[in-house]
Nucleic acid binder design. Structure first.
Lengths: 334, 334
DNA sequence: ATGAAAGCGCTAACAT
DNA sequence: ATGTTAGCGCTTTCAT
């Protein structure tokens, strides 16, 4: 109902609708007296200009799109992204915009069909995207569309403004702690990572190796997975053949990936409590695990907030200070 | 750039734009021949009609709003909502719509300012809302606006279409298990809940009491909190005065609430491992806690999916089958 | 079957 | 300072 339009407001105030528009948008060309009259009337009748009409006239939607990486069902299950979304939503709403969540669909020939349509239909003014596994078709489309965007994390094929954490340093610090915790007799650390193509995977591997080298620790093994449950299981089984008596693990990502690895290790009869464990991700509930764990806690809220801020900079033709902004991770010992 | 509009398409195809529109929308009044020509042209040039213009002409945005309960910073931190969002997003995108996330802001005099504006500006075609603590001002506005909406959970003041879980049965079953696990010498179960006004809190308390009664178990205590960290701490401290030697806990909600309670119990020197614990919520990582726990797992994906489906029913003037649709919870023993 | 034209509710350029 | 008017890119009557 509330069929109130700018026309009724104009009539009620005995002015032209352009005057109402100017008053509402804080533009000059309206006397203080008339402006006040309009503003108080608008407040009285609880009027807000129709978002769609304004969007069409101004050629901007007031909507920011947030694109999740991977398929929604697996990525959202991790706590990582939800904390990021929270921060982005708050920042976006603070700027008077709204957030649209875009989830690559899992059961679809084209996982980015939804994103593709959003771009083609000009449904959003800007995009914040998880940087990994975006295919070049969709990236080309986005670039051509001219829609401003920022990454969370980095994409090897598309260097662009992004917020990232200091993955190498984090992995380095966790590994140093692992080695410190290991007695002198222990000699086998297994590092399990996600896809090798991802920049953060490379960085974390580098940090891991750097720490091992620095400590003259040569008994390490590195295994990569594609994060799928099947491939992870297969990889861990192989790992246990190569390295039947590991002393420590550095698991280079958290969430379901970490849990899948734990499940398999337990299934294979490994006593997890005897392992020194490090993981790149943190969760409050780690306080109550029946094994101790060294974790790297990412500043998720800050990541989301800065991503949104940089996007707004871009939208207002202001270049963010740095191409890639690195945030520090916190090492948590338990 | 991609400045393609229906006008260029019309020119390229040598037809009127109204014909293009009809062809695109699958309406009759276009010969098969012309329709095919237009459709293949549109596919060639990768054209999609501008969402905003279409929204204005059709008086619908193609956007569904999802309103989180409480303040975003605390509610989103729990895994509960993110799984629900995933399911809703997929269902909404399946219907060719998009999802807008609306988070009540924490640091604001009016927590629902954002939602209020969205309603007044007609930014969404429908709303899915967490049912708890919506104030009557915002609910009145939504009702007046005529925007279709469904609840997840139930609101005592606004009986309306909603998806809920069988809270009483879940609490009952968890409590039965707790009592089963308790030896005959143990006599003290403490139940800690959220706000007493919430319908699900009442239901869970009822289920808890029903199980105790059935087992002729009279040594129980019930404590309510407002979910805030401070109030939860205060309540647990009081609890330990009333009941210094508890044997079991039924914690009627999960997420940060559950963890806060664990933190305080540990801080107060209680040996959690000796307690029988039940909680209304589940998490995969519970497999690795250093104490055993009985949990009620909610069908989060189904909740989100059904909420979206019922909303679409409502939007197409089709009443959902039931006012409140109850889903079963799964009891997980560990 | 096709096309011309009005209109959705705004904003912005242009008159006055 | 205020009002008139022309779009924004579609959909939808209404003629033809």
């Amino acid at each position: 109902m509330s069929k109130l339009t700018i026309n009724e407001i104009a009539k009620m105030a005995n002015v032209a609708k352009s005057t109402v528009s100017k008053a509402l948008n804080g533009q000059k060309g309206v006397s203080d007296e008339v402006r006040q009259k309009i503003l108080s009337l608008v407040a009285d009748v609880n009027y807000q200009p129709n978002a769609t009409a304004r969007a069409l006239a101004q050629n901007k939607t007031g909507i920011i799109g947030f694109v999740l990486p991977h398929s929604a069902s697996t990525s959202l299950a991790e706590t990582y992204w939800i904390e990021v979304i929270t921060a982005i939503t708050e920042e976006v709403e603070l700027k008077g915009n709204n957030l649209m969540v875009i989830a690559p669909s899992s059961n679809n020939e084209d996982p980015y069909e939804s994103l593709r349509n959003i771009v083609l239909r000009h449904s959003v003014d800007g995009l914040i995207m998880g940087a990994e596994n975006l295919n070049s078709e969709i990236m080309d489309l986005i670039q051509k569309s001219g829609i401003p965007f920022v990454f969370i994390g980095q994409n090897p094929l598309y260097p662009h403004f992004s917020i990232d954490v200091n993955n190498e340093e984090g992995a380095y610090l966790v590994t140093k702690e692992i080695i410190k915790h290991l007695g002198d007799n222990h000699k086998q650390i297994c590092c399990i990572t996600g896809p090798k193509e991802y920049i953060y995977t490379k960085n974390r591997i580098n940090g891991f190796i750097k720490a091992c080298d620095e400590e003259n620790f040569s008994g390490y093994h590195i295994f990569s997975t594609d994060y799928s449950a099947e491939n992870t299981q297969k990889t861990v089984v192989e790992l246990l053949e190569v390295c039947p008596n590991p002393d420590a693990f550095f698991i280079a990502a958290g969430g379901d990936f970490f849990l899948s690895i734990m499940d398999i290790l337990r299934l294979e009869g490994l006593n997890i409590k005897k392992q020194v464990l490090g993981v790149f991700d943190d969760a409050r509930i780690f306080d109550y695990l029946d094994f101790s764990i060294i974790s790297a806690k990412q500043p998720l809220q800050e990541i989301g907030q800065l991503a949104a801020k940089n996007l707004f900079d871009l939208m207002f033709d202001k270049q963010p200070e740095k191409q890639v902004q690195y945030l520090s991770v916190n090492i948590i010992l338990r």
